[in-house]
Design a protein around this nucleic acid. Structure first.
Length: 266
DNA sequence: AATCATCCCAACCGCGAAGTA
DNA sequence: TTACTTCGCGGTTGGGATGAT
């Protein structure tokens, strides 16, 4: 008879992980591999649910994660593009981004979307009050909301990368907004002016989604750095009937050599 | 310096599918 | 076949950090 995770609720620990707990978890994975999460608790090693252990491993302890490292412009573009292809399949999108987890991607996306929503909302408020050049308190324009302006200006000091001081009366909200996810969608064909970047062929791509020219190698999608396992992506596989491959259990045998170092470094 | 808004991220929850006795 | 457990995913939340006023 299997034990249920919900069976012993009284001794389940929640909240932030301590270094000692991480160490126990790492040792378990070293010994048994990234599986049998529930046995960690049933053996009395940790008072955490298997679910919690798995999450901790996948999001924080796994080797080669880019913890605390902001998304690069390229990663952002990849996320935006893949999201338009796959929808909110964060785990799948994350496979195209080495060192990123589904949680990373999800957090990235939702924070940018929130920012964008607020910007659009602000511009809507401002336009209804017929206020020219509204300046949201800490507002960024749409392009900035996806983090691309700063990156671009860093990347090329020569090219303009104008800061796009937008005014609400330039925005056709009806044209802008409508999205399955957040209720936001940018209609590319609509008149839509945030500053002068309409000249920029990549502008709409930058904002939300879809390559301007998918044949442009600039927008060619990277290959996943590992293929999803059948189980890991069963929802997706069910839909598009793709092939399968392995995931964590096929990591190289020496993968754990780095674990200790990584977990010690801040 | 204090306050407020926003960002960022870790972690939890609910659900559905796969696995198993 | 069925009932139950385990796993993985997507959505959500809470709190600390940071920046603007």
């Amino acid at each position: 008879m299997k034990k249920t995770e919900a069976g012993k609720k009284e001794d389940i620990k929640k909240g932030p992980w301590k270094a000692e707990e991480d160490e126990v978890l790492i040792n378990h994975v070293k010994r048994y591999g990234p599986r049998d999460w529930s046995s960690i608790r049933s053996k009395g090693l940790l008072h955490r649910t298997g679910k919690s252990c798995r999450l901790r491993w996948v999001n924080k302890l796994r080797p080669n994660l880019k913890n605390g490292c902001k998304f690069s412009a390229e990663e952002e573009k990849t996320v935006i593009d893949l999201q338009s292809q796959f929808g909110n399949k964060w785990a799948r999108i994350a496979t195209y981004l080495p060192g990123r987890t589904d949680n990373d991607v999800k957090n990235f996306w939702s924070s940018r979307l929130k920012r964008l929503a607020r910007i659009l909302h602000n511009s809507s408020d401002a336009s209804s009050s017929s206020c020219l050049n509204p300046k949201p308190k800490k507002g960024k324009n749409v392009k900035q909301s996806f983090g691309l302006v700063e990156e671009e200006s860093k990347a090329s000091s020569s090219s303009c990368s104008k800061t796009l001081p937008y005014s609400s009366d330039q925005v056709d909200e009806e044209a802008l907004i409508r999205s399955p996810e957040l209720g936001i969608k940018l209609e590319h064909h609509q008149p839509f002016t945030f500053g002068t970047d309409l000249d920029d062929p990549n502008f709409f791509y930058d904002i939300l989604g879809g390559p301007v020219d998918s044949s442009d190698p600039l927008f060619a999608l990277p290959q996943p750095f590992f293929e999803p396992s059948p189980r890991r992506f069963r929802h997706v596989l069910k839909d598009d009937d793709e092939g399968s491959d392995v995931f964590l259990h096929d990591f190289p045998a020496d993968m754990f050599d780095q674990v200790d170092d990584q977990t010690r470094s801040p």
